[in-house]
Design a binder for these strands. Structure first.
Lengths: 233, 233
DNA sequence: GTAGCGCGGATCGCTCAACAAATCACCCGT
DNA sequence: ACGGGTGATTTGTTGAGCGATCCGCGCTAC
């Protein structure tokens, strides 16, 4: 980095840019595919043919395999030797495991009050209002993502990049199971009021009670999801 | 799965097997490379030439690239577009971030007393004795891995596979920084007595005090590491 | 009928060779 | 010393190819 400017004016110009849209082809493929997976556009369990997908995305088989390897590492795909890659199918155990881990992360983040910043707290509030307006517009998919933002913001209270990363990955993984939750309204809507309560508790400084509430909330959500899950299997 | 056997006799035959040594070539490469990286045999910052490594490990460039992608995803390598992959160089911030996260995970696991099993607790004790005998034999590298096993066992108290996975990954990542800690004795030895104390506290059922002790311990270790870190840079 | 067997056909795992594009190292003129 | 051009090196990606493995199907034997 050449130190030509006293203040880094140039850096500011590019600061708010939406990331160069994934430079490499493989990463672009990963992003697209990940989008499909967490939106449930490909049913869990289906095999992803290398040839077919390579053709569909106009990339070589080699590049596609790089992408597959990454997504398998993110646990969105399963790689079975000499058989191919499949969209991950979550079991009921996976769901409880994910929720258990989430509970640990989120309550832990909540407990680190000395790290909480005003910026993070306002992100929580933002996610809540996002959810409220999505509900008002009866945009249930939007309500789902708002809910995700809420929990990411909670985890963000710890101010730890690594925690944020694992949290997003957990949520992505969890989304694989959302296709069994139909209609989405029934799943997300009841928790909106919980989000409001928790947000207010945090703002009022009573993180203890917020954590208790959150824990109960997550237990309930987990139980509901497991129930819906075992009903279909 | 064909249901030929009433009791699954066959499964037992293969139960204790040391995993088929990574079936695919790419995974084998990943394992070997990961071994090198966490042992510090390749200095952080060095570029890993595709051609050279492909030749050295007798695999094609394409397969090697798959391996590189995975290791980059594990944050052991850094991939820079059109420049190549480099062994990750941790910053002091990384170290504190890792320790902060570890603290959250380990104390969280410790707090979930209702999930603690006797099997897990004995694993902790095992790691402690492993460390004691390593210290007696003046095997400082062995003491390091014993210490790792200790913390993995603590995290294992939560009984959550995902937590275990992120914990191992964190420890692997942290190991990238161990090469600055020379001699290893001075870094690991002081903490052996702490391990003993914490183990006893857990066995006596006083997880509260164990958590406090652990937290202080990790803070100290982090500070020491950061100090050693900034001394070299 | 059904359990075992063998035989393609499809797909994966991996390699090799090639080429465009980007980066790097070096030299040059100023 | 500094900016700029130029060729060498390395990466990004592709395409073809081949052995290995798995799957489905039909055959046979009991």
């Amino acid at each position: 980095m050449t130190q030509t400017h006293g203040l880094d004016v140039v850096a500011d110009l590019f600061a708010g840019r939406p990331a160069p849209v994934a430079a490499s082809t493989a990463e672009r493929v990963v992003d697209v595919l990940r989008g499909y997976l967490i939106e449930g556009r490909i049913v869990p369990g289906t095999r992803l043919s290398e040839e077919a997908f390579a053709a569909a995305m106009s990339v070589s088989r080699n590049t596609l395999r790089e992408a597959f390897r990454i997504l398998a590492h993110e646990k969105l795909l399963v790689h079975e030797m000499n058989r191919g890659v499949f969209v991950r199918e979550l079991t009921a155990d996976d769901v409880t495991s994910i929720y258990q881990f989430r509970t640990m992360l989120e309550t832990s983040a909540l407990a680190q009050t000395e790290r909480h910043t005003q910026a993070q707290k306002s992100k929580i509030r933002l996610a809540v209002t996002e959810g409220l307006s999505a509900a008002e517009a009866e945009d249930w998919r939007g309500l789902g993502t708002a809910n995700m933002h809420f929990h990411l913001a909670i985890a963000g209270l710890a101010g730890n990049r690594r925690l944020d990363a694992t949290m997003s990955q957990l949520l992505a993984e969890q989304r694989l199971a959302f296709h069994v939750m139909t209609p989405l309204k029934d799943f997300h809507d009841p928790y909106l009021t919980d989000n409001v309560t928790i947000c207010e508790l945090i703002e009022s400084g009573d993180v203890e009670e917020a954590a208790r509430h959150l824990r109960a909330y997550l237990d309930r959500a987990c139980a509901q999801m497991v129930r819906a899950f075992e009903a279909t299997s």
